[in-house]
Write a protein that binds this DNA or RNA. Structure first.
Length: 420
RNA sequence: GGAGAGGUGGCUGAGUGGUCUAAAGCGGCAGGUUGCUAACCUGUUGUAUCGGGGUAACCUGGUACCGAGGGUUCGAAUCCCUCCCUCUCCGCCA
């Protein structure tokens, strides 16, 4: 949610921002509801004040006064109840619109849709093959690294078994990414894979409704998380830090579950788009002054990981309409994926400024003043997509796969998949 | 999953219908005493939000907040209901 005072004082700017992000919001209606809400609240507080002063005088009142005072207080109470009912309907609408107003946008963010995404820089060139490269599906089958058919029978479409070096790759990548993050000062945290819907909402996810990407557990007030961002963000909900305790830097590992409803087509074959995967996630709670620096820091950690993994990539500064609601600025790393003959998203790091903190009520205190923290998150490694990139980019003509040197220690020293 | 006991300020803990933002202690902050430290003494010490005053640090008035949300009542930390959480015992289990 964005700051109300800021919104009230900068209506035109917010309106333009919504347009830039291609978010349809009826700001006029919102401001109208906002005004009504304030008036009603003032009204209610005034009546409550009267009621309180009657209640206060009650014990001192004599017998003749009491019935009259009680009747008056009762009448005031009815007025309050009526006004509160009115307030509730207004506030529901008001809040629903407020939630849909996107975060402000970084001044350097390109304005426009996906076609305006800006390539900040590239690392290495797309892999060149002197032969027809195999897809990760073909390689997976050749070396028995994954099984989609059995998974489909056991769990359904878009599930998978990882086997042998395929499974080892997941564990190796997880451990490698965690080690890199810990070296950069992040504290390790394994989080729950399920969370309450209220926490999902607090982090800006929509656990219910037709558009939802989230699985809910029938008969329980729980949902499967789509990312550890939810559980790490929720970890500090309703807390106030001392300024000296910031920043808080976490690296979390969790499973991620996504319904991916309506996502079909070539790209959805194999490990690219699936219902469940493991992800190593970076997360920062910091002061507003620190957040821009940490955003570039997060990107730097991500880049160092993919450079160590020797995956050619480009870094994207996402255009305004591609940011979603909460992000102030978003950088993606897109790795080269031979099966697409294109770059594909590997990581995404966002500076959410105070947008999430306001919902989750996460603040920090400096002296007597407290204000909302800034929150940032970024993917260290999304395992399956990274496995795609490693398998496909490092394959040899005979189908054997070179394991990146950085990963070999985590693979029992194995250098090549397909060789004993 | 079953039975029982609880949830009060930064912490410990009192409060079972009005004088309660809530005793007392600890801690924190300011001052005093003092070779130094410690000890002692005095004062002070919640948050959010709306309005008024001030350049401002702040002052001032209202409202809300005793796990969360509802209800009863002129009036709720206190009584009732639902939910969440913690502890103890039992059951089950990796």
């Amino acid at each position: 949610m964005i700051d109300l005072d800021y919104l009230r004082a900068h209506v035109d700017e917010v309106k333009q921002n919504c347009a830039n992000r291609k978010v349809k919001v009826d700001l006029e209606k919102f401001l109208d509801l906002d005004q009504q809400r304030v008036t009603l609240i003032q009204n209610i507080e005034q009546i409550r004040g009267e009621r309180n002063s009657i209640a206060e005088h009650m014990p001192k009142a004599n017998k003749e006064e009491k019935p009259g005072l009680a009747a008056k207080a009762k009448q005031l109470k009815e007025q309050v109840q009526q006004a509160e009912a009115e307030l509730q309907t207004i506030e529901t609408d008001w809040r629903n619109i407020w939630m849909t107003i996107p975060n402000l946008t970084h001044p350097d963010t390109p304005i426009g849709g996906e076609d305006k995404n800006k390539i900040l820089h590239t690392w290495e060139k797309p892999t060149h093959f002197d032969f027809a490269p195999r897809t990760h599906l073909e390689l997976g089958e050749k070396w028995d690294l994954m099984d989609f058919e059995r998974a489909a029978e056991v769990s359904g479409q878009k599930f998978y078994y990882l086997k042998n070096e395929g499974a080892l790759l997941e564990m190796a990548l997880t451990r490698f990414a965690v080690d890199q993050a810990m070296k950069a000062g992040f504290s390790l945290m394994l989080t729950p894979d399920l969370a309450r819907p209220s926490v999902l909402e607090g982090t800006g996810y929509q656990p219910r409704g037709p558009e939802t990407q989230i699985y809910s557990i029938e008969g329980h007030d729980l949902a499967l998380i789509g990312t550890a961002e939810i559980t790490i963000g929720g970890y500090h909900q309703k807390t106030t830090f001392e300024a000296a305790d910031l920043p808080k830097k976490y690296v979390g590992v969790s499973h991620c579950f996504r319904t991916e409803s309506g996502a079909y087509g070539k790209e959805s074959r194999g490990l690219y788009r699936i219902h469940q995967f493991t992800k190593v996630e970076l997360f920062v709670f910091c002061t507003p002054e620190q957040s821009e620096q940490f955003h570039t820091d997060l990107l730097a950690v991500e880049e160092s990981i993919f450079q160590a993994l020797e995956i050619p990539y480009q870094v994207i500064d996402n255009a305004s309409a591609d940011l979603g609601g909460p992000a102030y600025r978003k950088f993606d790393i897109e790795g080269w994926m031979p099966f697409k003959n294109a770059y594909g998203e590997l990581t995404s790091t966002s500076n959410l400024t105070d947008f999430q903190a306001r919902r989750l009520q996460i603040k920090y205190k400096e002296g007597k003043k407290s204000q909302f923290v800034h929150m940032l998150n970024g993917t260290a490694v999304a395992i399956p997509r990274t496995i795609i990139a490693i398998l496909e980019n490092n394959q040899n003509q005979d189908g054997t796969i070179q394991i990146p040197a950085a990963l070999q220690p985590y693979m029992n020293g194995k250098k090549v998949i397909g060789q004993v």
